[in-house]
């Protein structure tokens, strides 16, 4: 780092700071301030100190929604960190017609959620394809209620989310895989390493920064999820698939309790900050044992 003036980094950052400052941080700051008020979306409100936080503590729907979101995150993050990597490796092969396959793998990302819900409805409903197949091969005796059993509904929502996210994170992995020097694979092959061995000893260590990126992104997106739950189940039955953002949103837009919605967002923000830090420390420890 020779000959760099102190302000050089800031020159690089200036356009970003300007745009993010005006259109993200200022509104976020504004909204965060509302967390300590009883602001009504249209009416304004007054400072109420920690009342909102106290209310969150005793709001069982908030905790239910947080639990659902965390459960969902725990299912989705490992799946969406690993499966897209495998898909990317498959899609990176130099074979005929690969562009076509890549496009198709990517297509669920741009599919409208309503259509995805329609098709998954055909799969998951009690007389749907999945139950039909499972009954045929004798795994189940009577139809499983994938979309109305409170203990399964979140898993069904997660499956659809994973399905829709595969192509998205595949793209990041494909880009990441190309940064792995080919000669490393050749060297490993010369050493007699089989494909699985090569995967573990070459791909995984070198793709780890990308896995961290994808893991973080999936976690952030998972904790924010609501479209899938909303379209598939409307949050039901009896709030079994009501996610945190669904709940926040309802309070802010239907209940018009902008202050309370902001307070819940603040809690979400802190939870995520904490999880990010844990993840960072964990990866750092993994990286330098």
């Amino acid at each position: 780092m020779i000959g760099r003036r102190w302000y050089t980094p800031w020159l690089f950052l200036a356009p970003s700071l300007l745009l993010l400052g005006v259109f993200l941080w200022w509104p976020v700051l504004n909204t965060t301030a509302l967390a300590f008020t009883d602001t009504h979306t249209l009416r304004g409100g007054g400072f109420t100190g920690l009342d909102n936080l106290r209310r969150i503590m005793s709001d069982s729907f908030f905790w239910n929604a947080l639990r659902n979101s965390l459960f969902f995150t725990i299912i989705v993050v490992p799946a969406l960190t690993v499966l897209p990597l495998l898909l990317a490796i498959l899609a990176s092969a130099k074979l005929k017609g690969m562009t076509f396959f890549r496009v198709v793998f990517f297509s669920p990302v741009v599919a409208s959620m309503v259509v995805a819900a329609l098709i998954w409805g055909w799969m998951l409903r009690s007389d749907g394809l999945l139950n039909f197949v499972l009954e045929r091969i004798g795994i189940i005796n009577e139809p499983v209620r994938w979309l109305s059993d409170p203990s399964l509904v979140m898993i069904s929502v997660a499956v659809v989310t994973i399905w829709k996210g595969l192509g998205y994170y595949m793209v990041i992995y494909i880009a990441g895989l190309q940064n792995i020097p080919k000669d490393l694979y050749e060297a490993a092959e010369l050493d007699g390493a089989g494909p699985i061995r090569r995967f573990w000893s070459v791909t995984v260590p070198l793709i780890r920064p990308t896995m961290f990126l994808v893991g973080t992104l999936t976690a952030l997106n998972a904790i924010k999820v609501f479209t899938e739950a909303f379209v598939l189940t409307g949050g039901g039955p009896n709030r079994a698939s009501e996610t945190l953002v669904l709940y926040i949103y309802q309070r802010g837009f239907s209940g018009l309790e902008l202050g309370y919605a902001s307070a819940m967002s603040l809690v979400l923000f802190v939870v995520v900050l904490g999880l990010t830090l844990i993840a960072q420390i964990w990866t750092r420890r993994r990286a330098n044992p």
């Binding site: 102190w6 690089f12 941080w25 976020v28 952030l220 949103y249 802010g252 837009f253 990010t276």
Partner: peptide, 28 residues
């Protein structure tokens, strides 16, 4: 680049990723 406040700035960016747009929409 190494500069003062780098980690803080980055953390701030990442953490704001989680704020649902709908919550800040009116402010935007």
């Amino acid at each position: 680049m190494r500069f003062r406040g780098r980690e803080g700035l980055f953390a701030m960016m990442i953490a704001t990723l989680v704020i649902p747009f709908e919550v800040i929409m009116i402010s935007v």
